[in-house]
Write a protein that binds this DNA or RNA. Sequence first.
RNA 1: UGGCUUAUGGUGUAACUGGCAACACGUCUGGUUUUGGUCCAGAAGAGUCUAGGUUCGAGCCCUAGUAAGCCAACCA
Length: 681
Amino acid sequence: MSEDKKSLNFLEQIIEEDLANGLDKKNLRFRFPPEPNGYLHIGHTKAIGISFGLGEKYNAPVNLRFDDTNPAKEEQEYVDAIKKDVSWLGYSWDKELYSSDYFQQLYDWAILFIKEGKAYVDSQSSEAMAEQKGTPTQPGIDGPYRNRSVEENLELFNQMKNGLFNEGDHILRAKIDMKHPNMLMRDPIMYRILKKHHHRTGNTWCIYPMYDWTHGESDYIEQISHSLCSLEFKPHRELYNWFKNQVYQYSKETYPILPKQREFARLNLSYTIMSKRKLLKLVEDRIVNGWDDPRMPTISGLRRRGYTPTAIRKFVETVGVAKRDNVIDVSLLEFCIREDLNKTAPRVMAVLDPVKLIISNYTEGKEEWLEAENNPEDESAGFRKIPFSRELYIERDDFKEEANSKYFRLSLGNEVRLKNAYIIKAHSVIKDDNNTITEIHCTYDADSLSGTGSEASLRKVKGTLHWVSTKHAIKADVREYDRLFMDEAPDSHQEIDFMEFINPDSLKLINAFVEPSLAEAKVGDRFQFQRIGYFNVDYDSKPSHIIFNKTVGLRDSWTKKKPEEQPQNIASTPIQNQVQRKAIDVIQQLGKKFTNLPEAKQLKAKKDIQELAKQVSYEELEPLFGTATKKVGTRIATMITLDVLLKGGLKKNAQIEDFIEKALVDNEPLLVAHAKAISLV
RNA sequence: UGGCUUAUGGUGUAACUGGCAACACGUCUGGUUUUGGUCCAGAAGAGUCUAGGUUCGAGCCCUAGUAAGCCAACCA
């Protein structure tokens, strides 16, 4: 009951307002209207979350309506996939509907339009019509068929419907205004001839209605109260309302509610793309292995990758809803899935990059089955047994011959704990001809077994390693994924095609050793491989050949601390670019705080600015001359930078003089002092 | 040369009718820990795009700029 403290997003505010203005809560109704021409992606999840979320919040029905007005692109396969995805996310729709259900009603209304002179048949080529339509900056002109008689229009439209013409011969247009500033209002097309088989209506129609004519009227027929869509449909709203107001005249008794379209910003995720067309290209070009490839931002891809509906819904809820363009950092998505899996995923041990560890003082042939906790976050998860023996695998990364005190893992002469087992100490290594370590020899402390409570078992050691017994471990394939694109916003560049940014190393195949309990893992099961990350069993998996997908790594505050050891992989490059800020930006920031700084720090800041100023061009600096009067610090920083530039040979111009003059008469002595110094240059 | 929309820490979203700019992610400290995870405690980071105006008081209202996005498919 206390959650109503939470502030409402702008859509909820609109609804609350409508409710306050007399809209009956019973009449609240929403819809999610996908076109069945592709798979749903994480961006759609936002739209789904908004409409279905509102349905849940107000206890109102939400229809799932397939916007299937283009038989050329739409297929049953997509309908099935969409239904599966929406259900998987945990939403249930009120009615499953199709725009094609309304073809007859739409046709009947269109006839009325013609009779009232609100629509006409145009018989020009699409090129001719495009020309008459004008451009966003230039009005259109009327075409030659605009004033055909009602009888002729009726006759032609009837013949169109009856298949007497070829595709492209004629279209039906609404008669609105060819000079309208909104291009969508310049006599928009309502029907085109398409002699194609439709996945629902078969061959009964050879004219198909266009989006604008269909979508809004479908909302109206279903008596949707709030029709929510993404921002690019904002210009359509005017046409949406125009059509709506016409049909309302014909059908207000049957359909009293006028739907209201409102628009929100769609979701963008960094390092990926969200266009169905482009995703389709990745599939068709075999960049990925299908729509549900775990690297895809599709819902089916995320599902296969191991994401949970809970995590995805939490993500959508967290990103919020507003009207400005946004790019959400993938780290937020990763946080959401970690948060969920941390609570629910059983812990197991798996070694992805193995090196042999031999415990020389452990009896040969001996084996012990040790107790291991399944999930420290969930007491009810219980315990399991894992086998221990003289020969184990550990991660190659977990050993270094020599290491400094910051290294918590195994090194020669140092102790470390084997998770759920004993404390060991490394003594020597064996290497092959390439100087690669093939075996690590160590001894164990027999009294240090985990959980025994003995003094030795309670000893504190710096690190704990995961391991598997070589004799008992089973082999498994692990598919490790990296981002598909190396650019933060791959499809936002005008000159560079998004395909140029594809990361060639987005899939890594790993032969791993996993603990034997995993032999019983079933498709879809999720685990935490301790100290590594979260993994789930892929559907390619067979009992004899288990395959895991890496969902996401554990948060890692260690690897990023050792830059000298970080491989110079491609994927990290854009991040570095992003972090490297422009000198002028840093100067601005230093300036903001400048006047608040104690004198010593001011001097340092000034030095920093002077240093940075060497990288600044006059073009970058000039806009800062317009800095608000009250932002004295920024003006001082600008002055210091300008000083450096002038000393570097820059000539004074009117803007510079003006900037200095204003500074000379300021109230802030520090600024005046800097301005005085510079005026002598 | 047009129309529409948007502008708040690195990212995203808040800030009720004008009143100390908040929350989450990310970053950085420290503590706990048989996962360098989790958890706990804390820190840094915003002069709210710019310039004016109204007001005791503006992120919010007004005016003018600037920047970004969308709009010219017989796609949705």
